[in-house]
Computed example of a mutant assay.
Amino acid sequence: MNMKTVKIAGQTVPAIGIGTWHMGDDPAQRAAEIAAIQAGITAGARVIDTAEMYGSGRAESLVGEALQSLDRDQLFLISKVLPENASKRRMEASLDASLQRLRTDHVDLYLYHWRGSVPLAETVAELQRLQRTGKIRSWGVSNFDIADLQELWALPGGDQAVANEDLYHLGSRGLDYAVLPWQADHNLPLIAYSPVAQGDSWGQHLATNATVKRIAVAHDVTVYQVLLAWAIRNPQTLAIPQTSSVAHMTQNIAAGELTLTPTELAALDQQFPRPTKKEALDII
């Protein structure tokens, strides 16, 4: 079996990476969380997604510690800047603090975490400038809806964004109506956060759905591996599930080798239909 890949910022990476939201908060979990991140890389993941917001920097510090024994050149590291720091005056200092916590001299992708009061043109201009310094290799956006993406593309340099990170899973398919078709037309990959819906109201519903369970049995995999395989069925999608368990992390990465059949995808579409009209962007 072959692991699915996605091309972001000119690099081809496995389509399942490692999310770190909620990690780094509990000192008692630190060793287990570091072991899980390292297990994910050993299993074949290359992408680690974090943000200055996660635990007010604690997730970045955790990632920095976890990656010390690994080859930085083989990793694709993503972090994000908060809206209040996404200005010409504050962004570089915010980035420098992230780099210090991450124990690296650059991030491979720096995302504008969500929109705030700073004019989008100013944020884009500063992201472009920081890319020229080498501290970030590429930049993108997060929690952008279709109107945000269209506005971004109309700005000078806006079409240099290399990814948009949004909430996306089988139980939250609003992106399928307009955002994903637009991104496909503009060759802009999606980074899907919370791709198995853990921690939101859909989670238990998805994991106990009879169709999902039947497909899992047919492939001898877990229901969460089915959900991940569904999320990356599009070759322009990178999923970043989070887990503090070595066993679950290994299963997550292995889901990149699972291909659902057209019949199975149709059955999931019937259970969880794609939207027929524009929906509000889901954010958690």
Rank of each mutant, 00 (worst) to 15 (best):
R46C: 03
T5R: 12
I253E: 12
A247R: 10
L228R: 08
S172V: 09
T243E: 11
G57W: 01
I18R: 06
T261W: 00
L82C: 05
E65A: 14
V13A: 03
H205F: 09
I8P: 00
K278V: 15
I240V: 02
Q236A: 07
L167K: 06
L167E: 10
Q198K: 14
T133W: 06
G40W: 04
A15I: 07
L102T: 01
K80T: 05
D185N: 15
D145H: 08
T250P: 03
L175T: 10
G171I: 07
L227W: 15
I18Y: 05
E257C: 01
G19E: 08
P119A: 06
V47G: 00
D166S: 14
A267G: 02
S245K: 14
D25V: 11
A32R: 11
A178E: 15
Q68R: 08
Q100F: 07
I191M: 10
M3F: 05
S87V: 13
A218L: 14
K278L: 15
I240F: 07
L127N: 06
S94Q: 07
F76V: 00
L62P: 10
V81H: 04
N143Y: 09
Y54N: 02
H205A: 09
A266F: 01
E151H: 15
G57V: 10
Q128I: 13
S172R: 14
V13M: 03
K213T: 11
W153F: 08
D269P: 02
G10K: 14
F272E: 06
Q270V: 01
L99C: 01
I191W: 03
P241K: 12
M249S: 05
K4H: 12
P275R: 07
P14L: 02
P241V: 11
I18S: 09
I232N: 12
L111W: 13
A255F: 02
H22N: 11
I253F: 08
G40C: 09
Q270F: 01
S194T: 12
V124G: 15
G57D: 06
I215Q: 03
R72N: 03
S87M: 13
W21G: 06
A178G: 11
S244C: 08
E65C: 09
A125M: 11
S138E: 04
V124W: 15
A15T: 07
K213F: 00
I16F: 04
T250V: 13
A39S: 12
W139L: 09
A31P: 08
V179P: 00
G203L: 04
P235W: 03
A121N: 09
Q160R: 09
I284L: 05
V223S: 12
G55A: 15
K278I: 15
M249H: 13
T263D: 15
P181S: 04
G157V: 02
D26L: 06
K80M: 03
Y168W: 13
I37F: 08
D49N: 10
A266T: 09
R115A: 01
L109Q: 01
A125E: 13
A66W: 02
H113K: 09
A51T: 04
E165N: 04
S142A: 14
Q225C: 06
W21A: 14
E122C: 13
R30P: 05
H22C: 12
V124I: 13
V226H: 07
G24E: 13
V221R: 05
G10N: 12
E279G: 02
Q270P: 00
T5Y: 13
